[in-house]
């Protein structure tokens, strides 16, 4: 089974803040990490390989330093890592990103399944996975929490998956090749191993430019990105109210008083 996992290197968002006085971002000491949701996709890729055999390839689009995210994936046991990096990709939005990743995956050859995290924590868009599925004309299942089995149906391999929806979950049969985005309920990512870390240090990362993947200029980077960020600003904070002091029963009295109309 040829398993592709798409990952993104993101800043550890819990640490990003806007300085309210200067209205600029405070990013000091913010580390770059693999998007946490993608770690579940990597783990599921490795588990699919353990269940059905094959090869796991991890792919990302980003600046040269995104290589560290790929090496981290290799330390977990991924077989091959591809970095799509080119000045021409700069400024890509989700449309252009999904196009570039789709072209990269095309160049990799035969694919059985593409795994993505449900969304990235910096943008929270959840758009790139479904976008890739359309560019490559594949069926998809989003928010997958379980890949139950893989069976043959009239000569085609089919995954039975469970996907999370608001009121519970859906069971779907998705023929391969397909694109799945996964939620954290699907597994518990493994820790890297020392041997994996040693291997990742020496591993060769495949680096492809826009030309290497035959990406059309109009579809990548700023030209291929219909959306633009017009401005960024600090979220408006709600104002604080009253602090209730005194003995617990006094506070309870007071609360009952103010809420009696509502409860």
């Amino acid at each position: 089974m040829n398993i592709i996992v798409c990952i993104k290197q993101v800043p550890d968002t819990t640490e990003v803040r806007i300085n309210p006085e200067t209205n600029t971002l405070i990013r000091d000491g913010v580390a770059s990490i693999i998007n946490p949701f993608d770690t579940y996709a990597i783990e599921e890729g490795l588990r699919l390989k353990e269940r059905f055999g094959g090869k796991v390839t991890v792919i990302t689009m980003g600046p040269p330093q995104a290589e560290t995210a790929l090496r981290e994936a290799v330390s977990l046991g991924v077989d091959e890592a591809v970095l799509l990096s080119d000045r021409a990709f700069a400024g890509s939005d989700t449309l252009a990103t999904s196009y570039a990743l789709a072209m990269g995956i095309k160049k990799l050859g035969e694919v059985d399944v593409i795994l993505c995290g449900k969304q990235a924590i910096d943008g929270d868009t959840a758009q790139v996975g479904p976008g890739i599925a359309i560019w490559l004309d594949m069926p998809q299942a989003t928010y997958v929490k379980k890949i139950e089995d893989c069976k043959e149906e009239s000569g085609k391999k089919v995954f039975r998956v469970h996907r999370m929806v608001e009121e519970g979950h859906e069971v779907l049969d998705v023929p391969l090749p397909c694109m799945l985005t996964v939620v954290k309920e699907i597994n518990e990512p493994r820790m890297p191993s020392l041997k994996g870390m040693m291997r990742s240090k020496k591993a060769e990362i495949i680096k492809w430019s826009a030309a290497d993947i035959q990406a059309e200029e109009e579809n990548i980077g700023l030209d291929g990105s219909p959306t633009q960020v017009m401005r960024i600003f600090s979220p408006e904070q709600r104002k604080g109210g009253e602090m209730l002091h005194g003995e617990v029963h006094e506070i309870a009295d007071r609360l009952q008083d103010v809420l009696k109309e509502l409860i």
Partner: peptide
Amino acid sequence: KLLAESDLFGVYIEEKYGGM
């Protein structure tokens, strides 16, 4: 098991015996 899978049990053992 987690420490084992991360190869930490063998850090001080020679490579020819499967250590690091």
